[in-house]
């Protein structure tokens, strides 16, 4: 009997696979999933170009060693040029302020950082150093993008698109009855459709996460540890598992699944401000607990709102993974009960 159910599930997955991967309705899922890839690719290109430019300039017009660090405010323009030579970066700017003050900016590079010296009427007033980005900085940026865009928005809405369509999309297309007229238990049908959605979602979002991680390491000699990489990929897959079950159920219970999706989004977004006990009744709490780098949103948040943020100890890895599986199982049980009572009444749907 189990062998028969497996065969039936595989048949459902085969039927659904093309729809979940290649549906015209789902093109935006790819855009959402791969938007961070484009962002990191753009960042890499820009960074590598800047780095090459600086190194080429420094090689062509070397600045004496240690001279850049010896420049102090109060020095005159001539003193600076005497020590460093003419600016080696083509970015000299001259402006005239409201009080007819002559302002000038001289830029230099040692091949890594860029130094911009600001003069007012020939006297050095400001020194700005734009250091080359480091892997540690980019790692933190990745963690922030992953937790606050990729998990909360990209995978969330991607799962809305993929999983709500598994049943609701076919009710709209008036083709669900073909499944319901086959000698297959509704629970097996639901499991097959969920598996198809999960395969598609995991493939799309872990591929995107893997590409982002590759692009993160590309400009640097160092890279994330194998543990960190597998943690990010695992969290992306678990997010698909958890959100997928929620939105599969939403497609069965609600005529317009966008309403429950909006409700879940509000709940998940408000997670930061919820008391500790309520935080734990969400998918994002367990997912963030599993992320290898803690990305704090506090810097981006209004200080008044920051006061409302409650901090909660992250769940242990075992508890977080078990919690996600438990939430998924409970939601799928409710969904399969609903599927068992499902009637075809396309007119009303």
């Amino acid at each position: 009997m189990i062998a028969k159910y497996w065969a039936q599930m595989r048949a459902v997955v085969r039927l659904e696979m093309k729809k979940t991967f290649l549906s015209r309705r789902g093109l935006w899922v790819y855009l959402l999933a791969f938007a961070p890839v484009l962002m990191f690719a753009g960042h890499d290109l820009s960074m590598m170009r800047t780095r090459e430019e600086r190194r080429a300039i420094a090689a062509a017009h070397p600045v004496p060693a240690g001279a850049l660090l010896s420049i102090q405010p109060g020095m005159t323009r001539e003193e600076v040029i005497a020590r460093l030579g003419e600016p080696n970066v083509d970015s000299r700017q001259i402006r005239f302020g409201g009080g007819r003050i002559r302002r000038e900016f001289l830029s230099y590079t040692d091949g890594q950082s860029r130094y911009v010296f600001g003069f007012a009427d020939g006297e050095l007033q400001s020194i700005s150093v734009r250091e080359e980005e480091t892997f540690a900085q980019d790692r933190l940026i990745f963690a922030t993008v992953f937790q606050f865009f990729f998990l909360r928005l990209a995978i969330f809405f991607g799962c809305v698109g993929i999983f709500t369509n598994l049943f609701r999309g076919e009710l709209i297309d008036k083709s669900l009855h073909y499944y319901l007229l086959a000698p297959i238990r509704r629970e097996v049908l639901l499991a097959g459709k969920y598996a198809a959605g999960l395969i598609a979602a995991v493939a799309i979002f872990t591929a995107s996460a893997a590409l982002q991680l590759w692009l993160l390491s590309l400009p640097y000699e160092s890279s994330l540890s194998g543990h960190e990489i597998s943690a990010y990929l695992g969290v992306a897959a678990l997010a698909c598992l958890g959100y997928g079950s929620v939105f599969l159920a939403a497609g069965l219970f609600f005529r317009n699944p966008l309403l429950p999706a909006a409700g879940v989004l509000i709940w998940e977004s408000a997670n930061l401000f919820l008391p500790s006990a309520l935080k734990k009744i969400s998918v994002i709490y367990y997912l963030q607990s599993l992320c290898p780098v803690v990305a704090s949103p506090h810097r981006e948040i209004n200080p008044v709102l920051a006061l409302l943020i409650s901090s909660t100890e992250p769940a242990s890895t075992i508890l977080a993974v078990a919690g996600l599986f438990a939430v998924t199982a409970v939601v799928l049980v409710f969904a399969s009960r609903r599927a068992r009572r499902l009637e075809i009444n396309y007119g009303a749907d």
Partner: peptide, 17 residues
């Protein structure tokens, strides 16, 4: 179901057995 040929339609749903 979208994108299926006549044969695929019948065959795919028979596989559900």
């Amino acid at each position: 179901p979208k994108g299926l040929s006549g044969f695929q339609f019948i065959y795919s749903f028979l596989r559900l057995f």
